[in-house]
Design a protein around this nucleic acid. Sequence first.
DNA 1: TTGAAAGCGCTAACAG
DNA 2: CTGTTAGCGCTTTCAA
Lengths: 343, 343
Amino acid sequence: MRKKTSLADIAQSLDVSKTLVSMVLNGHGDSNGISRETQERVLAKAKELNYQPNMLARGLRMGKTNTVGLIVSDISNPFYAKIIRAVEDALSAYSYNLIVCSSDENKKKEIELIQMLEHKQVDGIIISTSQATESELIKLKQPGLPFVLVDRYVRSDNIPFVGTDNYHGAYALANHFLDNGYKKVVILSHKPTHLSTLNDRKKGFLQGLSDRGLSDSEYRIIDVPFTNRHAHVIREMQQLYDLFNPDSVFCLNNSLAIACLDFCKQNNISIPTQLGVASYDEIDLFRLLPTTITSVEQPVQKIGSKAVEILFQHINAQVPIPPVSYQIKPKLNIRESSAKKTH
Amino acid sequence: MRKKTSLADIAQSLDVSKTLVSMVLNGHGDSNGISRETQERVLAKAKELNYQPNMLARGLRMGKTNTVGLIVSDISNPFYAKIIRAVEDALSAYSYNLIVCSSDENKKKEIELIQMLEHKQVDGIIISTSQATESELIKLKQPGLPFVLVDRYVRSDNIPFVGTDNYHGAYALANHFLDNGYKKVVILSHKPTHLSTLNDRKKGFLQGLSDRGLSDSEYRIIDVPFTNRHAHVIREMQQLYDLFNPDSVFCLNNSLAIACLDFCKQNNISIPTQLGVASYDEIDLFRLLPTTITSVEQPVQKIGSKAVEILFQHINAQVPIPPVSYQIKPKLNIRESSAKKTH
DNA sequence: TTGAAAGCGCTAACAG
DNA sequence: CTGTTAGCGCTTTCAA
């Protein structure tokens, strides 16, 4: 196992300086007026010795790693998996790579991850935070390290954000429910609800209901904890179903929707004849089920690429630039699971 | 935007050496006999100046980055998303992080990614390769850089591998199909089929059929390209359906299964009464659909953790250790989509 | 108990 | 056209 070849090795075996080799290998040969011939000797020798640059050394020297960090609550959630993919693709155009991390909705873990990324000297961080407030994020943030929030925002005018307009997405869905005759609605959400996404969806939906005159007695909210959410949904839906006798359910994210479908399955509740169902967040299979599932679909591709675009504006900025916020309109996929009520 | 604090800053402001500070901060204070008091002064000052270690510098010096690379064909595929999550969790026990990359079944891209990871000095690489042979991988591999193959292997005794026993998983499924009376089977796969996974599944399934005396005229194989696979599946299934009049389909991975479900949906083909369906690879929703989908489920958790375990055996090995292969048995989820044939 | 000095591999002023 | 030098921030002999 021979030692890896470095710039110095090439320089030495050619009897030139490291500087020269570095210039040539980085394509700055011409601009530094290095003779054609010398350049070719360098290139040839580099190939001969199978030279592989050491990005650590380069990064240390240049203060730049061409790596960004991405933190989400769970990379195996299909929604985040797609965001990650979109971010990866957008980054590759800049020759950047991605360190991904799952925070499991755990603030402590999230903070540790941010610090770890800073220690690894990433050039920027994209994060779907589980923090309630900006203060902790700001405190952590090394001055000058670009942050972009995706999906979830925190009360702040100091950090750029890219996400969807959850409020209006849910509002539109509420109208759709009412249009189709539903009037005893269950809202399936999480607690503690410090997440901007869930809060906005809930607010938007409730506003939608109340704007059409639905009274408080005509809906119920179920808030399940994040841990063991599936089982909680099943149990609480079970209880509420007999008590409240709902005609529809609005699931505030895809995990909750899956759990809700499981509940229906287990209890032989047919959708939509016995229960109308809609989900925030799309899953590929939703449009392929025998009964297709109504959903609010977020433009994941767009979110990812926009987040990267903004991140690079900050990375490349000479002077601090003001943070911007993008709220992209989601798309309402009206499908069979929320068909006009017949019962 | 003040400069970040380094070891030197702490050393200087305390009038001690960088050496000492380094020792203390790495917990080697006691073992180097540094006085309790000095240690505390260092720790206090580090906190006061908000010292954040620079892992680049440390990595350069130590030849170790505490980072591994993971390459799969598409990180947004639910199967890989789960593998990634499992790997991430296993790595976090070692305080390691993960750079993830999608190769899109593209050899050239894969090779570039491997090189990029080597340049970034990752301590090891886990890869679900799209290469046909080991030669290219071996050629790339810097001597001493640990590789572990997951999911897909290449003909080789030189690189450790962790995956499932695709042959027997598919073999078992063939038996299940025959047990339930299916006898005109479509096998839905990809071309070019250089992937060990698809090849083994196909072989195992065909062997299963032939061991029970099914003749060549009683099955058909559809091989679609990777690009635009969904549309291809729909089109080719369409054609074959009328011609061959199959009673069942075995989809060799989850993307193909989704496309197949779409085909059935579009053509109002009811599962399983008109067409039995099974998928290799599980998707959460499969067990929640009104008609649940039979699948061969791979132990993703186990694959991820085992791959990491093996990787670290190699990373920590003083002398080269022989590569091992793990083939984990998959689980056959028999569900409604392949119920006993009645027509 | 502590420090000096060297060096990981690279790039960038500056000098010739 | 090319080389010298310095230094990014850290760890590690070796010496005191």
